[in-house]
Simulated assay, not measured.
Amino acid sequence: MKKSGGLILVTAVLMALVMSVSGCAVKSQTGVDHTEEASASERIQIGVTFDSFINERWLRDRDVFVSRARELGADVNVQNANGDVKEQIDQIGYFIDKKVDVIMIVAVDSASLGDVVKKAHDHNIRVISYDRLVTDSGTDLYVSFDNEAVGKLMANSIIDSLPHGGRILKITGPEKDHNVSLVNEGFDKRIRGHQISIVDDFAAPFWKSEEAYDYLNAHEEDMRGVQAIMCGNDALAGGVIQFLAENRMAGHVIVTGQDADLDACQRIAEGTQAMTVYKPIEELAGKAAECAVKIAKGEEIEDSLTISDGTYDVPYVRLEPQSVNRDNLDSVIIDSGFHMREDVYLHMER
């Protein structure tokens, strides 16, 4: 009987130990889950709304921004407005409802977002204008390249190629894009006094290459005697060069662009596009991500300038663009890793 009683006692003690250990395991697991949930909820939340992804460069901006923000401990929700300002306003409203810490905007229409930016501010959400300044709204920060300098670089290429002046066309982006006015301002200032006559100035509504192509097809008479075409970006330059190629004029008319898209760099290598403006997207998008995290934490942005949005002076982080032509295509584009050599020279005879 004593032996049986001892066995029962040992068994009871073992069962108690097992239950105690099991209880600790459950508690420990539960504790880990709560910690992870708390950690996730404490991460900075950033909402980003893009105009569209029609242009190659915006995909690169998106990927670099998201990657860098995550490295810095932030979660990013990216939305695409597909060129629809109402959709973009709805997306910003969605971010406000989600109570994100920062909203970054690549504006569809720079002049139409003032009310929704104010609503974000009323909810203590900071707002960044990315690459395109949202006007009359007092966003907390503007991160972009020097857009007047972009226009000057385009003008320099045309002036160098037409030392005695000449007739040119301008095919730019939509007037609702504030950057277009800045690029035009820089371009127009630079060509003054160089006997350059602007035959026509067309604003493509959606930055699409086919808009430039269709415009030239409908205005062939304007091409008579035109020696250069200033294109607001590389997509528009692509439509222009398609038209020129079909009319056996490619390589005989100076064409400028912007963004250093791969196909533009290929055309520069082939001699059908004179230049593009390179804007190191990794630097811009990475800097924007760093600034977004800083302002979410309430930290100051060092070394910022200011720019007027028409009503308010907005802190401005400005980066410098660079002109790219056949002479420096390799050193700027390929050596930096922006595009691969085999891709840039894909269509060239080896």
Results as ranks from 00 to 15, higher is better:
173 G>P: 07
260 A>V: 03
19 M>W: 01
266 Q>L: 03
246 E>R: 05
170 K>Q: 13
287 K>Y: 12
51 D>W: 08
37 E>F: 10
313 D>C: 06
102 V>S: 06
45 Q>P: 08
102 V>Q: 05
260 A>F: 01
108 V>I: 10
312 Y>D: 05
50 F>I: 07
245 A>E: 14
13 V>L: 12
248 R>T: 14
160 D>I: 05
42 E>H: 13
145 F>Q: 03
7 L>A: 04
24 C>D: 04
142 Y>T: 04
11 T>Q: 07
239 G>I: 02
190 R>I: 12
220 E>G: 08
90 D>P: 02
40 A>V: 09
35 T>K: 00
116 V>M: 06
319 L>F: 10
287 K>M: 14
252 H>P: 02
273 Q>G: 04
279 K>N: 05
167 R>Y: 11
134 V>Q: 03
63 D>P: 12
65 F>V: 00
278 Y>H: 12
103 I>T: 06
189 K>L: 14
187 F>I: 02
71 E>F: 14
171 I>C: 06
328 N>H: 06
194 H>V: 03
126 R>M: 11
109 D>N: 14
272 T>K: 08
30 T>A: 01
183 V>T: 05
288 A>T: 15
16 A>W: 00
200 D>L: 04
174 P>A: 10
22 S>Y: 10
297 K>H: 15
296 A>M: 05
84 D>Y: 02
56 E>K: 10
128 I>G: 01
280 P>Q: 12
42 E>Y: 11
79 Q>C: 11
293 V>Q: 09
165 G>F: 03
296 A>P: 07
118 K>F: 14
274 A>D: 15
30 T>K: 00
56 E>L: 05
170 K>L: 08
210 E>G: 07
195 Q>E: 09
38 A>N: 11
101 D>M: 07
162 L>R: 03
172 T>S: 13
57 R>L: 13
121 H>I: 13
51 D>S: 08
97 D>K: 13
137 S>G: 13
49 T>S: 15
55 N>L: 11
341 R>A: 01
246 E>M: 02
197 S>F: 13
280 P>C: 04
72 L>K: 09
61 D>E: 09
261 D>M: 04
26 V>N: 04
314 V>R: 00
63 D>T: 12
321 P>M: 07
204 A>D: 06
266 Q>W: 01
33 D>Y: 00
224 R>C: 03
329 L>M: 06
192 R>L: 15
70 R>T: 09
53 F>K: 02
122 D>M: 12
302 E>A: 15
133 L>S: 13
288 A>S: 15
83 G>Q: 13
216 L>E: 02
271 G>F: 08
102 V>W: 01
289 A>K: 06
317 V>K: 01
